[in-house]
């Protein structure tokens, strides 16, 4: 009896069943896609560490103004980035926007130009793509050590460029 079973096992080549592994991989894939669908803002820059907040409001698709590299990464120059494009460098010693880069004490010239360009593009796309258009919506993604002075400069500039709906990005934390 044992000899017959052993012979049968030798005759038939061993096939690894991948079906269960396939299920696991598909589940992980669905989970990761769901996370992407829930959060349209992804912060990958290691120099940006968001503060935690009890706010449970979800982020929406909008223009992202990022203030990077404050305080922790001393060797890295802090920058202001709009939708992935660097527009202005901050003074690494004072962590402020240089006065020469500003107008009226608050408005950051290059940031305003970039935002006006985005605004023009959004208005242009409104006629071509249904459901698109200028919303005036902007999300500020700033490092948790960003000083109030820089935040106010960014906010005033956004407002001056016509972006009136502001939101601060945070990491959701249970209250």
């Amino acid at each position: 009896m044992m000899r017959r079973i052993r012979r049968r096992a030798q005759d038939k080549p061993y096939v690894v069943s991948l079906t269960s592994l396939m299920d696991i991989v598909t589940n992980i894939l669905v989970y990761t896609i769901k996370i992407f669908a829930v959060s349209p803002i992804v912060v990958q820059d290691p120099s940006v560490e968001l503060p935690k907040s009890s706010s449970q409001k979800d982020a929406e698709e909008s223009v992202v103004v990022m203030v990077t590299g404050m305080r922790r990464q001393v060797n890295e120059t802090p920058t202001i980035v709009v939708d992935g494009r660097e527009v202005e460098r901050l003074d690494p010693k004072t962590y402020r926007v240089p006065e020469s880069a500003k107008n009226n004490g608050y408005v950051i010239n290059k940031l305003k130009q970039e935002l006006l360009s985005i605004k023009a593009n959004q208005k242009e796309s409104a006629g071509l793509i249904k459901g698109s258009g200028f919303t005036g919506h902007v999300v500020i993604v700033a490092d948790r050590y960003t000083p109030y002075r820089v935040l106010v400069d960014v906010l005033v500039t956004c407002g001056d460029a016509g972006f009136g709906n502001f939101e601060f990005a945070v990491i959701k934390q249970e209250a």
Partner: peptide, 15 residues
């Protein structure tokens, strides 16, 4: 590509 951090927002008004 994902940071696996639940990102939320706080609405604020214009300065």
């Amino acid at each position: 590509m994902s940071a696996f951090l639940p990102i939320g927002v706080i609405s604020i008004q214009a300065p």
